[in-house]
Design a binder for these strands. Structure first.
Lengths: 222, 222
DNA sequence: CATTGAATGTACGGGTTCGTCCATTATGTA
DNA sequence: TACATAATGGACGAACCCGTACATTCAATG
């Protein structure tokens, strides 16, 4: 038993001596952890399960992230950063306000729809009463961008008399987010109860149209 | 130490012999469990913690509900039943379609806003991929009612030429739910990021007006 | 009032899960 | 090359947590 262990010592080429690669190790852990936390929640996720699917060992999780909570926070920060990076890339200055707003809504819709992990992580953090997010100041900064974008659009829309002026950017953002987020976050219960598949392409398109029409229509009401 | 234990044997009047009351025991467990599951989620909830806060012992949880999962399912069913019972009581036949719809939206808004536990339980069940809800056929039946109510309103609205006819009741319901639900479910993350208190009365009223105007406006678009 | 099943309480065991201790190897630097 | 520090692995322990075996009491019924 133990003799066989002592035998394999740099014997085959495949069992090469280890290579230190901190960045890759961290990124690897983070990727696996994102899946695990998104799938099972904070309390449901298992540190051992994450470690197993990793190229490295559990020891590294504690070495780099301090523990389960630290890892969870890192996952959450990265998820927000990735999503908002996409939104920030929007170039809307040349479009008329209605078209620009439609573009923002389209972007949010597609983001939530294609980043299920992000939606689930945010949901989980809300179950956790946002306690971890409160410590992550970086997340707040990242999100100010989307508000600025909407604010600029509203400004231009008001200037040309298209939009009403009693709605704040943050409220408009909430409305858009609510629709796009709910479709993904509550997919399971809503789908099971009403026997509809919210991810089906046809309904997907319909909903995107609905949301845009509703928000834009609201802003144009006098 | 142990002598004192043997001493208290039907000594004081307050330590009366036990009284069997199955209904009360079940209801008691259910109430405590609702709080625990809503607070910590399915995997985060602790059976021992529930038992401790109960008038009875852990043994009774397994006696009446089979186990943690059975208890969770019972909690979920009761939560849905309670909410939809309120909605079903609406009397809308005499109102004009727009007013009736406004009444439905108002009801949904108030329900989600005042039943935080319900919102959290639904959220948790979605994190759990709706696997438990799929087994609870009762929940589906209960929810058909709200769709029927909306359908009737849409019918009348179309008949008098007020509403467009290309929106299904279930989509309208989703739109209403999405907004009302998100306000409560994502209160923590959204509030922390944008520094707004979504439960503050002023914003609450504003949001109620917004969602009603948006949905009704959408239905009136040609 | 005797009996029987329903209802309840206590104590505990087996498995799981987080975090850490100790040892070892890699890599940059003097 | 020697050394210091960073990076990694394996194994283990202590706490936690779910579920159950066993014992006991209540209440309905003949």
């Amino acid at each position: 038993m133990s003799s066989s262990t002592s035998l394999r010592k740099r014997s085959s080429a495949s069992e090469r001596s280890r290579t230190n690669d901190p960045d890759r190790t961290k990124a690897d852990i983070l990727a696996v952890a994102t899946e695990e936390f998104a799938a099972y929640g904070l309390s449901g996720a298992r540190v051992d399960a994450i470690a197993e699917r990793t190229r490295t060992s559990k020891r590294m999780i504690y070495y780099y992230f301090g523990g389960k909570d630290g890892l969870y926070l890192a996952v959450l920060e990265k998820a927000y950063a990735d999503i908002r990076a996409i939104e920030s890339a929007l170039e809307l200055d040349l479009l008329d306000p209605v078209e620009a707003l439609r573009r923002v809504i389209d972007q949010t819709f597609e983001n939530d729809d294609s980043h299920t992990d992000f939606v689930r992580l945010v949901t989980i953090e809300n179950i956790n009463q946002g306690k971890h997010l409160a410590e992550a100041s970086s997340i707040r900064e990242i999100n100010l961008r989307i508000i600025q974008i909407i604010e600029a659009i509203l400004e231009r829309g008001r200037a040309s008399g298209l939009f009403r002026s009693d709605l704040e950017p943050v409220d408009v953002h909430m409305m858009i987010s609510a629709f796009c987020f709910f479709r993904v976050a509550n997919r399971h219960t809503f789908g099971a109860i009403h026997r509809v598949d919210l991810s089906e392409p046809g309904r997907r398109q319909k909903h995107k149209q609905m949301i845009a029409d509703a928000v834009i229509g609201l802003l144009q009401q006098k």
